[in-house]
Design a protein around this nucleic acid. Structure first.
Lengths: 153, 153
DNA sequence: TCATCATGTAACATTTATTGTTACATGAAA
DNA sequence: TTTCATGTAACAATAAATGTTACATGATGA
């Protein structure tokens, strides 16, 4: 399987949208993510359905953030894109009749379930606003070496 | 990407090998894993290099466990198969120049690193012997409904 | 009204990793 | 010396994310 970078990518453009304060087109977001506009629409559709962003057609249209960044966590975004599988490792078969495989699966499932719970807990502790604040800190630390907050590839 | 079931699969056959107490051929192990003998050899090669199993050619040959199940943990087996990627989720680019992406990556990396550490900790607490014991418990609980410990698909 | 911009979505192609298969060499046992 | 079994390279099949094309829909502006 390929690496799933949807969460990383969508968080990236969400912050840019927050900074921009005005609609950005799928094409603009796609450029930031180094991807295709249709891919952007595909992912953003989930955020729109969840009520986090709004899309407008026609001239001056595009995507805008319509949620409060301080009350939306990374876990919310993860859920909005459809809660894709966290792990690349998994079982061969569910509900095996083989008792040996049952023992193996039970043990692995416990470990993976705990790890996933911890991950989601961590995601729940980070809001979009916190990410934005982190960005601003990095920006200030770079003051003088950059002229604006535009996207650098 | 496809699901990686190597860890699950190899643990499964390792327990069968412990129970068997005599060499099992790649073909026999492949049947238990519902896969191809070459796939078995490919995975077992790592365990052989790590010194956990031994392979013998010719008549009566096959694979045998040559380690102490009580002193080998699931984490050891995970390492022996090459420590494949744990997560299906990841970044789009490492070392991005974009400060926004840096902020996003930093936050996600913390969460994923912690989750992975917890997972490996859990794997370190389970030995092959513990898995075998778990299997025996399940076997006793089923006493009367099964005649042997043979592999059931 | 109508040309243009932008999203919405289906359908299909590409990519990347695991998994499956074939082929052939090597070595051990009967 | 035949048969069994591993060792490994090379290639095919598969699955899931990602990339692309095509076309419909709706909004804006002249």
């Amino acid at each position: 399987m390929k690496h799933d970078s949807r969460l990383s990518g969508v968080l990236h453009v969400l912050l840019h949208m927050i900074e921009a304060g005005k609609p950005i087109t799928s094409e603009g977001l796609a450029e930031m993510m180094s991807t295709h506009p249709v891919v952007v629409r595909r992912i953003m559709a989930g955020l729109r359905d969840a009520g986090f962003v709004h899309s407008e057609k026609g001239h001056g249209g595009g995507w805008t953030v319509i949620c409060d960044p301080a009350s939306v966590t990374l876990d919310d975004i993860y859920a909005a894109i459809g809660s894709p599988p966290v792990f690349a490792l998994g079982h061969r078969s569910e509900n095996p009749a083989c008792l040996v495989e049952q023992a193996v699966n039970a043990s692995l499932e416990t470990a993976f379930r705990d790890a996933e719970q911890l991950l989601l807990e961590r995601l729940r502790t980070v809001t979009l606003a916190a990410l934005a604040a982190d960005f601003h800190q990095r920006y200030l630390a770079k003051r003088g070496t950059r002229k604006d907050i535009s996207h650098a590839v």
